[in-house]
Structure formats: structure tokens, C-alpha cells
């Protein structure tokens, strides 16, 4: 069996290092390659059942071997990514200003790191992690939040006056990032891994279910303030149905969606709008469908337009 695994590793390694996937995060690569294997099974089968690979194996068995190998590649890349994100891209000092269950920032960081590893162990929450990891890892959240606080408009007002966050701008940014990273727990705690309110790939849940997920997540994230866990789970609510949901949750929902298929360094064709500007404008048209806050999208679209993002 070890020989088969080696062969699978060789095959998957070639796919993993393909230049056409460069720039994608490990989870984006994994998702793309799983789809690629499924879609092209018919074409790949003759090669994969040749003497060089797995002669006489049925496709199901080959697919499992490749999937395991792929998962191994992704996990190898994920561990340092988590570390890099939590150590270098985030600061958890904001927890000290929050009521309930506060602990030292380093304890919160360590616990969240473990929680992320747990989330990546389950297929649907693992998929959902792609957006938050990309958003935090590429610095996109930092870029937008900096502009949000410079502008002092709708989003800033919602964060400062409505949600009453009396912490520094950098701490609010870290709070949004943390909220994004907690968000996939909805998929994790959903029975069968699928959100109950929809048969689609959308992550929209009811407020009742959100409360149950928040309670379950709270049992694992014991050092994390309740309000942060609640906001992370509430980011899967529709803003139209829940107009009082936290502004950090609304931002986390928008940024997670935006970053899910984000391709850093994507070349913008002549005659096309920039990537972020296009995405936010399309999201404005679909805001009800995704349960986004339209005013936030309008402001983020404005920021993208002003900065050519």
C-alpha cells in the first residue's frame, strides 16, 4: 500500500506544483484539484490505471488514494500558514478590552490555532476556511479597514457607534479577522456538514440555529469572548432577516465571500474593471441573495474604486 501512496504522491505532487495554480492558497488548490479529478476522471483513468500508476484499480479506490495524498499536501502547507497568520498577521490584544471569558492574547491565539486545525479536519468547514485564510493572509482586510477608518463613513459609524467598539482601529481590524476565522464553525457544527436552511453552497442559517452553533463553539473556544464567537457564527445570518446583527459579523460575511475565490496578482484585462471593484459591484446586485448589508457593499465598492483595487 505504501508503494501506491508514493505513486499517488508523485501524481498529486505534479498537479499541486502546476504553474496554473500558483498564487492560490492551499485550500483553494485542494478544492480545485478535487474538482479537477472528479470532472476529468474519464480522461485520467487510462493513465492512472496504466502500469506506471495503479493497474486494475477501480476509479473509486484511485480517487481515495489521490484525495488522501492531496489532503496531505494541503495539510503540510496549512500548518505553517496558520502559524504565519496567527503569529504575524494578527494580534489578539483586543480580547483584553472585552467582557466575559477573557484570557491572555497568547492563550487565545493558541486555542484559535487548535480550533482552526479542528475546522480543517472536516470537509465543509475546511472549504469554508479558504476565504478567511486568504483574506487575512493576503492583508486584504488590513487594507480595507485602514480606508474604512480614514473615511469615517457608514462602516466606521456602525463599528464605533452602533456596535460600540471602544478599541483601537488595529484592534477592530483584528476583531474582524478573528470573526472571519470563527465563521466556518457553522459548517463544522452543522449536522451532515451542510447548513440546514439551504441546499446550496451558501452559508446562510437561521438565528435559532446560530445560537446553538455559538454555544457549541463556545465550549471549544473557552478563552474567546462570547461576543466574538457570536459574531463569527452570526456572520452566516442574512442581514435582511437580522438587521441588528453585529457590524463585525456583516463585514466578516462580505470579506469571507470575497476572498473565497480571490486570486492575488490576477491580471486585469484591458477594458475590464479591477477585481475587487467588479466583485463588490456584482455583490451589490446580489446583496439579498447572500444576505449582505448593501450600505457596506456600497462603501467597500467606493474604496475599491478609489484605490484601483
Amino acid at each position: 500500500m505504501s508503494a501506491e501512496r508514493d505513486k499517488a504522491d508523485v501524481f498529486v505532487g505534479r498537479l499541486w506544483n502546476n504553474p496554473s495554480l500558483s498564487g492560490l492558497s492551499p485550500l483553494q488548490k485542494e478544492e480545485q484539484l478535487l474538482q479537477f479529478l472528479e470532472i476529468n476522471s474519464g480522461t485520467l483513468l487510462p493513465t492512472l490505471t496504466s502500469r506506471a500508476f495503479f493497474p486494475d484499480y477501480p476509479w473509486v479506490k484511485i480517487y481515495d488514494l489521490l484525495k488522501q495524498s492531496l489532503s496531505g499536501y494541503a495539510n503540510k502547507a496549512l500548518s505553517p500558514l496558520y502559524e504565519a497568520i496567527l503569529e504575524r498577521k494578527m494580534d489578539f490584544s483586543f480580547v483584553q478590552h472585552m467582557p466575559h471569558r477573557t484570557s491572555s492574547p497568547s492563550a487565545v491565539r493558541t486555542q484559535l490555532g487548535d480550533f482552526l486545525k479542528t475546522l480543517s479536519g472536516q470537509i465543509n468547514s475546511r472549504k469554508e476556511l479558504a476565504g478567511p485564510l486568504m483574506g487575512v493572509g493576503t492583508g486584504m482586510i488590513d487594507r480595507y479597514m485602514e480606508k474604512v477608518f480614514q473615511r469615517q463613513k457608514y462602516i466606521s459609524f456602525e463599528l464605533r457607534k452602533v456596535q460600540r467598539l471602544k478599541i483601537s482601529s488595529n484592534e477592530v481590524t483584528d476583531l474582524v479577522k478573528t470573526t472571519m476565522l470563527i465563521r466556518p464553525s457553522v459548517q463544522f457544527f452543522t449536522p451532515g456538514g451542510q447548513s440546514p436552511s439551504s441546499g446550496r453552497n451558501l452559508l446562510l442559517i437561521s438565528s435559532g440555529f446560530a445560537a446553538k452553533v455559538a454555544a457549541a463553539a463556545g465550549k471549544t473556544l473557552t478563552f474567546m469572548p462570547d461576543s466574538v464567537i457570536k459574531a463569527g457564527v452570526n456572520s452566516a445570518l442574512s442581514f435582511q432577516d437580522n438587521p441588528y446583527m453585529e457590524s463585525t459579523a456583516r463585514l466578516a460575511a462580505v470579506f469571507s465571500h470575497r476572498c473565497r475565490n480571490l486570486k492575488p496578482g490576477m491580471k486585469v484585462d484591458r477594458g475590464a474593471e479591477s477585481s475587487d471593484k467588479s466583485w463588490f459591484n456584482v455583490a451589490r446586485k446580489n446583496y439579498k441573495f447572500y444576505g449582505f448589508d448593501l450600505d457596506m457593499l456600497v462603501e467597500l465598492h467606493g474604496i475599491a474604486a478609489e484605490n484601483g483595487w
Partner: peptide, 10 residues
């Protein structure tokens, strides 16, 4: 809504 997922770069 597509269960098959997004588009492929490869």
C-alpha cells in the same frame, strides 16, 4: 448554487 463548485484554473 452549483454543487460542482467554482471554475477551474487547471
Amino acid at each position: 448554487e452549483d454543487q460542482a463548485g467554482g471554475a477551474l484554473d487547471i
